[in-house]
């Protein structure tokens, strides 16, 4: 699915990622754990093609993605989904329009957008909130909208960057359950970045430990 081959990244002479190699199997729930400053955010920016590595290769299904440019790069990004710690929803759009955004940017027709958005909102159990402004939702509901938005374009890979760090324990459990359900029923590959081992162990079947910009261990877990 996703392979990293000896990728390195430096900022102003400071090496943040020090030769990481990873193999993320298809349909796995892959956790990457590390403390603050371990390089998690940089790694997720590299994997989601927001930044290019200084050296090394990023491959999706065997094809180099780190060398993609302009339209090909945008097309590749559109095949990935991402969920953030702070949800990052558009406050100028209501729930429906937030989920519709990824479909709008690929030029989907209006008549095909509405049923897809409604299908996704039903998936995340927010059908009745379609016209609500996002500011009036709880943290858990916002994250559900963000998940629906990330799934709009049928991504093959979903990145979750600390998706439960801003949520209370009860909501955390429900969001993790939702992610597990999505992975199972939609056949997605999920990569979750977290600093909380309990979150990783509750969901992931692989975990890679990141320390000072390097992977120090990869384990297979029995969960999920």
């Amino acid at each position: 699915m996703l392979s990293l081959k000896d990728i390195k990244k430096s900022y102003c002479g400071n090496q943040v990622i020090r030769g990481i190699s990873l193999e993320v199997p298809q349909n796995s729930f892959y956790g990457i754990i590390g403390r603050s400053g371990a390089g998690k955010s940089t790694l997720v920016r590299l994997m989601s093609l927001l930044e290019r590595p200084d050296s090394g290769e990023i491959l999706f299904d065997g094809e180099r993605a780190d060398v993609l440019k302009s339209k090909a790069l945008l097309a590749k990004r559109r095949s990935l989904g991402m969920v953030f710690q702070q949800f990052n929803l558009f406050s100028s759009r209501n729930v429906f329009d937030n989920v519709a955004y990824p479909l709008e940017i690929i030029g989907a027709k209006k008549e095909s957008i509405a049923p897809r958005v409604r299908e996704l909102l039903a998936w995340v159990d927010l059908s009745e909130k379609e016209t609500s402004p996002v500011s009036r939702l709880s943290g858990g509901q916002k994250q559900r909208v963000a998940i629906a938005r990330a799934l709009a374009n049928n991504p093959s890979l979903l990145f979750c960057d600390e998706p439960t760090s801003a949520l209370d324990p009860q909501t955390t459990v429900s969001i993790l359950e939702l992610l597990k359900k999505i992975r199972k029923e939609m056949g997605l590959t999920v990569i979750m970045i977290s600093h909380q081992m309990e979150v990783i162990s509750a969901t992931c079947n692989f975990v890679a430990e990141l320390e000072q910009g390097a992977i120090v261990s990869v384990k297979e877990l029995k969960h999920a």
């Binding site: 989601s48 990004r77 991402m82 953030f84 702070q86 929803l89 990824p102 938005r149």
Partner: peptide
Amino acid sequence: QVLLAARVMGSS
């Protein structure tokens, strides 16, 4: 972060 989300989704 909101702009980052838009970029991740493949917006031009």
